[in-house]
Amino acid sequence: MTAMLSIEGLKVIYHGFSALKGVSFDVEPGESFGLVGESGSGKTTILRAIAGLAPIASGTIAVNGKRLGARRDKAFYRRVQMVFQDPYGSLHPRQTVDRLLQEPLAIHGLGQGEQRIQQALDEVGLGSGFRFRYSHQLSGGQRQRVAIARALILEPTILLLDEPTSALDASVQAEVLNLLEEIRGRRKLTYLMVSHDLAIITHMCERLMVMQSGEAVENLDVSQLAAHQVTRSYTRNLLKASAGFDRRTRLRP
C-alpha cells in the first residue's frame, strides 16, 4: 500500500536559518499522524512546506505516491487543505462566511454553490444563521468551525491541522476536537496534526513524531506514549511537564 503522504529528507532553510534539518516520515491513508514539539521545533514548518508556503531546500514530498514539484497545482489544493492555528487571524476581516466559502468554489469552478455552502455549514455544526455573518460576529470556536468548513468544501483527502484548538478555551476545544474526529470518520480523511499538547495528540492520533530543533526525536505509537514507553529523555520531559506542576521536583537553581 502506498503511503498517503510520504516525506523524505525534508530540509527547509529560511534566510540562512535551518528550520528543518532532514525529516522523514510516512502517513498511511486514513491515518491520523501527530507532530509534537515545542516552539521552534519545526513542526509547523513541515505543514507549511507540504502546503507550499515554506522554501524547501531539499528532500521530497509525495502525496499518494506522486512526487510534488516545486509548484503546487490546483489539483493539489483539492487533495490537501489546511486549518490554521489562530481562528482570529485565518478569516478575512471584511468578508462574510458566505463569501469565504464561495471563494474556493469560484477558484476551482465548482458548481452548486448554494448547496455546497449549506452542506459545509451543516457539517461543521453551524446552521444557515451563520452564513452571512462577518468573522467579528463569531466566537473563536465558531470561527474555527468556519475555517474547517472552508477546508472541507473542496473535498480534500488530507487535512493539515496546525494546533487547531490551542487558541480556544478547554470546553470549546473539546467540541472542535470531537468535530474533527467525527469528520475524519465520516469522510475517511487523513490527518496530519501539529500540537504542543501531548494529551491532544494522544487523543486524536494513532502515531506521532516528537520533534526538537528541526529534527525528529522519536517516532511512537500512541499506545506506547500512553504507557510511558518512550526512549528519549526529551520525550520523557515533555510527558512529565504535561502532567502539571509538581512542587517537590523544584528545578535546579
Binding site: S171, A174, L177, H203, M204
Partner: peptide, 19 residues
C-alpha cells in the same frame, strides 16, 4: 465539565464529553 472535557494521556474517551 471543564475538568472533564480535557483530553488526558492514556484515557480513551471518544468523543470527549462536552460542557
Amino acid at each position: 465539565g471543564l475538568l472533564d472535557c480535557m483530553p488526558k494521556i492514556g484515557a480513551d474517551r471518544h468523543p470527549l464529553p462536552v460542557l
